[in-house]
Design a binder for these strands. Structure first.
Lengths: 225, 225
DNA sequence: ATCAGTCCGACTGGATCCAAAAAGTAGCAC
DNA sequence: GTGCTACTTTTTGGATCCAGTCGGACTGAT
């Protein structure tokens, strides 16, 4: 890799101030994008070399990912990319159902800034869906949901929901790959947004529940078949 | 430290197979027991020396604790023992309310082995309470609650609840220090257990809610005053 | 041919050393 | 006396090196 001396911000966005943060972001991306396959062993030396750092920051990043459940670890055997069983997938979605409902309720009533952010994010989701840009849609979708969850003002809840999302990110892109699914997402977002505008928290919660159910059932069918 | 060659199990229980696991357990204990005070900086060199390991395994243990929210971290400034604001404390208890209710419902109906474990744990809680053994009571109490939550068969949920407990462990001991509080705990446990025996999940959930409310309100009064 | 035991290679775990960043301190100008 | 700057100290971040463990391959016996 060519390292510019005077311009540190050469590659995508600014590179984090420490190697472990850089590695953390990079490995998380590789896992959630499916580039590193579930169940596969992580060879520290090889991966560290590929990222041009030593094993020390890599190991610290892996410890963080272990805490998030993205990798599993056994002493003297190293790290593996975590595998999600069907039971795990359903558990994650069940927990999201409970926790995101709480977040939505706690976020109400929403102020104008939140609505603005929700609408901006939704516009991006729509654009990406139209173009079939799966990765971009996943990003915009996350921004949409988390704009709402952040408004709850519950940092720990936000963090937990975030880790639940991370652990299923690889599957989410799979879901967005279907054009029908993308249409569903848009319709559900719009309906939830309308409920939120009407100040109807329970209505929005119900739409988000449908939103998740549709995703998990589709994925379950796809993965089992 | 004197290391026996033939008998590795010299100090309390068997020492973990890796230094980082040993350090993790030790630092977690020090934080949850209040030995390391909230807000204080963690000097890696000093702490590593005290535990007779190098900074590397200590740093990996701290990364794990960061994931659990027991310490906070800022690049180039190091780790600090996390401070719980009143808002944090209330958020933790609110999340526990939601998640533990889910665990109780999912655990029903309980089989005999779970009842046996619950009763064994409760007996220990009663004994410890009578003797005013705060630390021991905290341990037995945790065993009681988690026997129930484990029965839900939801590993991620169990883990999340565990981290929420960890983050408030230091306060829990404070609560148990009051004789009145200990009496409350016993009564609430007994009532919840009776509801569980009757197959009444919602009744048990209500008792656990009271259980937590009593604790958080008492603590709030104590900490604000 | 199968299985037990041993050995060797590969990989992880940990210690030490070095680099870089932040915090503290002293000196200087105003 | 105050505020800024340069320098020193302290502490964290990272690289390299060594030790310990695990798993598989090889050997030999039954």
């Amino acid at each position: 890799m060519v390292e510019s001396v005077s311009e540190p911000a050469s590659e995508s966005a600014t590179r984090p101030p420490t190697a472990q943060q850089f590695v953390l972001a990079e490995v998380r991306r590789a896992i959630t994008s499916g580039e590193l396959k579930p169940g596969s062993a992580i060879r520290q030396e090889a991966l560290a070399e590929r990222l041009e750092v030593s094993r020390v920051p890599l190991r610290e990043a892996l410890k963080t990912l272990e805490g998030e459940g993205l990798v599993s670890y056994r002493a003297h055997r190293g790290y593996r990319v975590a595998e999600l069983s069907m039971a795990d997938l359903r558990e994650v979605y069940r927990l999201r159902e409970i926790l995101e409902a709480e977040a939505v309720r706690a976020a109400m009533p929403l102020d104008d800034a939140v609505f603005a952010e929700l609408e901006a994010a939704q516009a991006l989701v729509e654009q990406a869906a139209e173009r079939g840009a799966v990765e971009e849609m996943a990003r915009a979708n996350r921004r949409f949901h988390f704009a709402l969850y952040e408004a709850a003002g519950m940092p720990r809840l936000l963090r937990i929901i975030g880790t639940l999302w991370d652990s299923t990110d690889a599957y989410r892109s799979l879901y967005y790959a279907g054009a029908d699914n993308r249409r569903h997402v848009l319709a559900e977002h719009r309906a939830a947004l309308a409920a939120l505008r009407a100040g109807d928290a329970e209505g929005a919660v119900r739409w988000f529940d449908r939103h998740r159910s549709a995703a998990v059932e589709t994925l379950a069918a796809q993965l089992e078949g």
